[in-house]
Computed example of a mutant assay.
Amino acid sequence: METVKLVAEIKSKISKLKAEGKTIGFVPTMGALHKGHLSLVDTSVKNNDITVVSIFVNPTQFNNPEDLLTYPRTIEEDLEKLSDCKPDLIFIPEVNEIYPEPDTRIFDFGVLDRVMEGKKRPGHFNGVAQVVSKLFDIVSPENAYFGQKDFQQVAVIKQMTKDLKLNVNIVPCPIIREKDGLAMSSRNVLLSEDQRKNACKISETLFKARNLVAELSVSQLKEWVVEEINKNNYLSVEYFEIVNDTTLEVINDWNESNNKIGCITVQVGKTRLIDNVTF
């Protein structure tokens, strides 16, 4: 496992590996790694000759400066966790390596980035597309691995890859959960002990909601989920939407689509947690 900080250096190393016919798997992260991230790394290691993991807290995807400042940074712990997964290269660039000059590109993803997280965090997915496209250019992977907890992000990255005609296979991987059901997230470490105990109510409610599809209309189910979670004094639902899992268009009737996903964001103190469940 080798750590690289410079764009020129990692490009050189990858160029040599590709010349040897090696396939490259890539796991982009913002650090504060947990078992969810490590499962992506494990999958890449199993399916590619070489696995590259990046750790970079991307400033352009934060529309809240305080969120950027408080985002957990745990490089030493991250490297220790990665050593068990045995990726080949760890790319840890400084901001000026990724953005030697401001990135002024504006992406148009249509509905994909105008609903849910896109609506609540204007510019967030544009920043995601900026950094991921730059990282793809630097790493030149055949396969890139993303967790489905960030379902909307995966949809945006798939669209970006298509729009830019990038030859990268986007591999979505299942949500990894804590024993009590809470979706693993780098932000979970920001929760107080009491907040953490109560946060599992989010997934618990989503799992119950799947069993109510036959009894409730879409609007009734959405209302039930919001009310059920908001009963908990530690939790406040920012939004809960049921959407088509490809177009992300809002579903108003169960018969509108065969592939439906419920996406939720809940405020737990000052921390925003996202989760989703398929219907």
Rank of each mutant, 00 (worst) to 15 (best):
residue 224 W to R: 07
residue 203 S to D: 05
residue 260 K to V: 14
residue 226 V to L: 07
residue 245 D to V: 11
residue 252 N to T: 11
residue 255 N to R: 10
residue 207 F to T: 02
residue 238 E to R: 14
residue 214 A to T: 07
residue 209 A to E: 03
residue 247 T to L: 08
residue 233 N to F: 07
residue 213 V to W: 00
residue 202 I to R: 02
residue 205 T to F: 02
residue 239 Y to N: 14
residue 252 N to S: 14
residue 235 L to N: 00
residue 213 V to F: 01
residue 254 W to H: 15
residue 249 E to H: 14
residue 223 E to I: 13
residue 251 I to E: 08
residue 217 S to A: 06
residue 243 V to F: 02
residue 228 E to R: 09
residue 229 I to F: 13
residue 227 E to V: 09
residue 202 I to T: 03
residue 259 N to D: 15
residue 206 L to S: 02
residue 216 L to K: 14
residue 220 Q to S: 11
residue 213 V to Y: 01
residue 216 L to T: 03
residue 247 T to A: 11
residue 213 V to I: 08
residue 239 Y to T: 12
residue 202 I to Y: 01
residue 250 V to H: 09
residue 253 D to S: 07
residue 237 V to Y: 10
residue 219 S to L: 08
residue 224 W to N: 15
residue 227 E to G: 06
residue 223 E to W: 05
residue 203 S to L: 03
residue 215 E to A: 10
residue 209 A to R: 02
residue 245 D to L: 07
residue 202 I to L: 06
residue 222 K to N: 07
residue 208 K to P: 01
residue 226 V to S: 08
residue 220 Q to V: 03
residue 214 A to H: 14
residue 231 K to F: 12
residue 216 L to D: 01
residue 215 E to G: 04
residue 217 S to P: 05
residue 230 N to P: 06
residue 244 N to V: 05
residue 232 N to K: 06
residue 206 L to P: 01
residue 221 L to F: 04
residue 218 V to E: 01
residue 257 S to Q: 12
residue 260 K to N: 13
residue 232 N to D: 10
residue 250 V to A: 10
residue 221 L to Y: 11
residue 249 E to R: 12
residue 212 L to W: 05
residue 222 K to Y: 02
residue 235 L to C: 03
residue 243 V to Y: 01
residue 219 S to G: 04
residue 242 I to Q: 05
residue 239 Y to F: 15
residue 241 E to T: 08
residue 207 F to E: 05
residue 250 V to W: 02
residue 214 A to P: 00
residue 216 L to R: 10
residue 207 F to D: 00
residue 230 N to D: 15
residue 208 K to D: 06
residue 220 Q to D: 14
residue 251 I to L: 14
residue 232 N to V: 08
residue 247 T to Q: 08
residue 238 E to W: 09
residue 253 D to I: 04
residue 254 W to G: 13
residue 205 T to R: 02
residue 235 L to H: 03
residue 205 T to N: 06
residue 226 V to I: 15
residue 251 I to F: 09
residue 248 L to I: 11
residue 210 R to H: 08
residue 240 F to V: 04
residue 215 E to S: 15
residue 249 E to I: 13
residue 218 V to P: 00
residue 257 S to W: 08
residue 256 E to M: 09
residue 209 A to W: 01
residue 216 L to F: 09
residue 230 N to M: 10
residue 208 K to L: 10
residue 207 F to P: 00
residue 232 N to P: 07
residue 255 N to C: 11
residue 234 Y to F: 12
residue 210 R to W: 10
residue 224 W to I: 04
residue 248 L to N: 01
residue 208 K to W: 02
residue 246 T to V: 15
residue 214 A to I: 04
residue 208 K to H: 03
residue 229 I to G: 08
residue 244 N to K: 12
residue 214 A to R: 12
residue 226 V to T: 10
residue 257 S to F: 05
residue 234 Y to L: 08
residue 239 Y to Q: 15
residue 259 N to T: 13
residue 242 I to D: 03
residue 220 Q to C: 12
residue 251 I to K: 08
residue 246 T to S: 13
residue 242 I to G: 06
residue 225 V to N: 02
residue 243 V to M: 06
residue 208 K to T: 13
residue 242 I to V: 14
residue 260 K to Y: 08
residue 217 S to F: 09
residue 230 N to E: 14
residue 240 F to H: 11
residue 245 D to R: 15
residue 229 I to V: 11
